[in-house]
Design a protein around this nucleic acid. Structure first.
Length: 596
RNA sequence: GGCCCCGUAGUUCAAUGGAUAGAAUAGAAGUUUCCUAAACUUUAGAUACAAGUUCGAUUCUUGUCGGGGCUACCA
C-alpha cells in the first residue's frame, strides 16, 4: 500500500475511534507537504470541521496525537499550521520501502486483474501520409495500452484502416490521369507519399476544372458538381462497389503502396497492432442492426425509405442511420464494428483514441448502442484528445501547412545525431549502436514532447522552433538514466540484495529522503494514469524524479560516499531510480540508453 | 441559431475547492583538478474581465470579451 493510502486509511480509523464518524479513505485529502513547512505529508482538516463541529486545530492535535502514538512506525511527529496537519514520516518507513523494492523488477505494476480492454488508435486514411496529429494519436494509443497492461489489464490493440470511399477514388483517378504508370519504385518515393501526391493532384485538377466551368458561365455550385474529374470519381466508386476487376486491381495496388509506406513509419516509431480492421470489410456491417432497431422501435423509417433515430429527448438531433438507397452510414458501420469486436474479443471495455472533433459522434454512438441494448454499449469509451495546432492555427493539408510525420521524425533523429556528435561522449560506439542511439534520443524527444501534455487539451507546435533536448524533455530523462547506469556499471550487482543496517535511518539526508518519497509514489502514479487515461501524469512524474536525482547527484557522491553504508544506500537509490525511469519511459513508448 | 471545449509568466505546459499559483524554455548571474555540464545553483516574470457561492476559487455558478470544435443521406 502506498503511504498516501496508508495515511488515509489510518486517518479514517482514527476519526472513527476518536469521534465515531465513518469516513471513506477517499474523502480524506492528503497532499505532499509544501517544502517551506516541516513534514512530509499533509492532511487537510477543513473538510472535517463541519461534520465534527470542532476547530481545525483541535481536530489536528487529536488526530496527530492518535496517529503518532498508535502508528509510531509511520509517523514520528506532526505539526498543525492554519488548518493543515503536517505529518513527518519516520525514516524507518522510507528505508523499509527501499529495501523491499530495490530488487523488485515488477515495482510499480499490478498483477493481472482478468479484465480485457481493446484500444483502437491510429486509424489512418489511405490517401494521406501520416502527419503530426497522427503521431499524437499513435503515441497516445500505444502509451495508454502500456499503462493499462501495467495495471493488470489484458490489452488488445486495434486499428481501423479507412481504405475505401470516394476520397480513395480521387487518388486513383488522378493516378490514371497523370502517372503514366509510375510506381513508388520507379520514382523512388515512399508509397504513402506517392499516393498522397496524387490526392493533391486531384484537388488541383478539380479546382482547375471548376474554374474553367465557371468561366463558361456555369454557377459555382453547379460547376462543383459537374467537373468531369469528379464525375469520373463517382463512377469509379460505383465500379468499385460493383467489383469491377480493373478498378479493384488498381485499388489493391495503390493501397499496398500505402501500407508499405505506413509500415515503414510504424516500424520507425514503434507502433503495432494486434488486430487490424479494414473498412472495406466492415462498411456493409450494421444493416442487420438497423433492422433490429426498427423492430424495437428504436429507429423509424421516413417516407423516402431512409432510417433515423430521434435523439432529441437526449438533447441531441435526429440522426440518419441508413440512407434511402439502403446503404449504411459512418455511424452504422461503427455500431457494426463495435458488435463485431464484441463478438470476437468480448472485452470489458473498448477505448477509441480519436480526436475531440468527433466528440459528438461518439456520444451518439454510445447512446445508440445503449438504446439498442447491445452488449458492447457500456464499454465504449471515447478517449478524446485535442488537436495539434500550429501557431497560425489548424493544420490544413490543402494549404500545405501539414507537418509530415516522416519529415519530423527524420529531423528529430538528425538533430540528435548532431548533438551527440558535438558532445563526443560515445566515440567508441559502432555504426549500428550509433544509429540506434540517434533513433532512441530523437524519438524520445518527440514522443515525450507529445505525451507530456494533458491529452484532452489541444497543443501548439511551432515548426520554427525545433523540439527541445533540455529541461522537461525525453533526452533529459534519458541522460539521467545513462548517468546512473555509468555508475552502476562499476559495481557488481550484489549491492541490490545486500541489507542496509538499521542505523542508516539516523543519517538520512534531505535529498536522499526526497528521492525515496518520489520513488514511493510510482505505483500510485501508474494507477492514476490509467484511471484518467493520461500518460502526461507519468511524464511529469518521471521528470520530477529525474530532477531530484540530478540535484542529489550533484550534491552527494555515490562512489565516494562518506562511508560504506552510505554508498550502499545511494547505490540502491540509484538502482531503483534507474528502474523507475526505465519503466516510466517504457510506459510512454520511449527507450532509455545505458550511455549517451 | 443550437450544443460543446478553451483563455495561467515573452513562449510551451502544471496545479482531485486548499497553505506564498508550480515547471521548462527564452532573459540575467554563477558552478567542471572529484561518479557523463544533454547537468546543477541563484534571479526576475502570469490566473482575460466583472459579479456571486465559501473559512478558502486558476478550479464551481452567472455575465462580458477573445479563440476553437461540432451541428453531412462524407468517413
Amino acid at each position: 500500500m502506498s503511504v498516501v493510502a496508508l495515511i488515509k486509511d489510518t486517518t479514517a480509523k482514527a476519526i472513527k475511534q476518536l469521534y465515531g464518524l465513518e469516513l471513506l479513505p477517499s474523502e480524506i485529502l492528503v497532499n505532499e507537504t509544501k517544502p517551506e513547512f516541516e513534514g512530509d505529508y499533509t492532511i487537510v482538516l477543513f473538510s472535517f470541521v463541519k461534520q465534527l463541529k470542532k476547530s481545525p486545530d483541535s481536530i489536528g492535535t487529536e488526530l496527530g496525537n492518535y496517529i503518532s502514538t498508535n502508528y509510531p512506525n509511520l509517523c514520528s511527529s506532526f505539526s498543525i499550521i492554519k488548518g493543515f496537519l503536517n505529518l513527518s514520516i519516520t525514516p524507518t518507513y522510507w528505508i523499509n520501502f527501499l529495501q523491499q523494492n530495490v530488487a523488485n523488477t515488477a515495482f510499480g505494476t499490478q498483477p493481472s486483474n482478468g479484465e480485457k480492454v481493446m484500444v483502437e488508435y491510429s486509424s489512418p486514411n489511405t490517401n494521406k501520409p501520416l502527419h503530426l496529429g497522427h503521431l499524437r494519436n499513435n503515441f497516445l494509443g500505444w502509451s495508454i495500452a502500456e499503462i493499462l497492461k501495467a495495471n493488470g489489464y489484458d490489452v488488445i490493440k486495434t486499428c481501423i484502416v479507412n481504405d475505401r470511399g470516394i476520397h480513395i477514388c480521387k487518388s486513383m483517378i488522378a493516378w490514371q490521369m497523370f502517372a503514366n504508370g509510375a510506381t513508388p519504385q520507379s520514382t523512388n518515393t515512399k508509397g504513402d507519399h506517392f499516393v498522397g501526391d496524387y490526392y493533391v493532384q486531384f484537388n488541383n485538377e478539380y479546382k482547375k476544372q471548376v474554374e474553367a466551368l465557371i468561366a463558361t458561365g456555369v454557377s459555382k455550385e453547379d460547376a462543383e458538381k459537374q467537373a468531369p474529374i469528379l464525375k469520373a470519381t463517382q463512377q469509379m466508386l460505383l465500379d468499385w462497389e460493383a467489383g469491377k476487376p480493373d478498378v479493384i486491381n488498381l485499388w489493391n495496388n495503390m493501397n499496398n503502396w500505402v501500407y508499405e509506406g505506413f509500415n515503414a513509419t510504424y516500424t520507425t516509431i514503434g507502433s503495432d497492432f494486434d488486430k487490424v480492421y479494414y473498412e472495406s470489410n466492415t462498411y456493409l456491417l450494421g444493416k442487420s442492426i438497423v433492422e433490429k432497431g426498427l423492430e424495437k422501435n428504436v429507429f423509424f423509417k421516413k417516407e423516402d425509405g431512409s432510417v433515423w433515430i430521434d435523439l432529441t429527448p437526449d438533447g441531441l438531433d435526429e440522426k440518419v442511420v441508413m440512407r434511402k438507397d439502403g446503404t449504411s452510414v459512418y455511424i452504422t458501420q461503427d455500431i457494426g464494428l463495435a458488435e463485431q469486436k464484441q463478438n470476437e474479443f468480448n472485452a470489458n471495455q473498448s477505448i477509441y483514441v480519436v480526436g475531440d472533433e468527433q466528440n459528438y459522434h461518439f456520444k451518439v454512438l454510445k447512446l445508440i448502442c445503449q438504446k439498442l441494448q447491445l452488449p458492447s454499449a457500456d464499454g465504449i469509451y471515447h478517449l478524446s484528445y485535442g488537436m495539434v495546432e500550429l501557431p497560425t492555427g489548424k493544420m490544413k493539408s490543402r494549404e500545405g501547412t501539414v507537418v509530415d510525420a516522416d519529415d519530423l521524425v527524420d529531423e528529430m533523429i538528425a538533430i540528435s545525431q548532431h548533438k551527440t556528435e558535438e558532445l563526443g561522449k560515445v566515440k567508441d560506439f559502432t555504426e549500428d549502436e550509433l544509429k540506434s542511439l540517434y533513433n532512441t534520443i530523437g524519438l524520445g524527444a518527440l514522443k515525450f514532447f507529445l505525451l507530456r501534455v494533458d491529452p484532452k487539451k489541444k497543443m501548439i507546435f511551432n515548426p520554427e522552433e525545433s523540439i527541445d533536448f533540455h529541461g522537461f524533455t525525453g533526452p533529459f530523462i534519458q541522460y539521467t538514466h545513462a548517468r546512473i547506469k555509468s555508475i552502476l556499471r562499476k559495481f557488481s550487482n550484489d549491492f541490490i540484495t545486500t541489507s542496509l543496517s538499521a542505523s542508516i535511518q539516523h543519517s538520512l539526508l534531505l535529498l536522499e529522503k526526497e528521492l525515496i518519497i518520489q520513488l514511493e509514489q510510482f505505483p500510485l502514479i501508474i494507477k492514476e494514469a490509467a484511471e484518467f487515461h493520461d500518460p502526461s501524469k507519468i511524464a511529469i512524474y518521471i521528470f520530477e524524479l529525474a530532477k531530484i536525482f540530478n540535484s542529489f547527484y550533484s550534491e552527494h557522491s555515490i562512489t565516494n560516499a562518506e562511508n560504506e553504508e552510505k554508498k550502499l544506500l545511494r547505490l540502491q537509490l540509484a538502482q531503483l531510480t534507474a528502474h523507475v525511469l526505465h519503466k516510466g519511459m517504457a510506459l510512454l513508448g520511449i527507450q532509455v540508453p545505458d550511455r549517451m
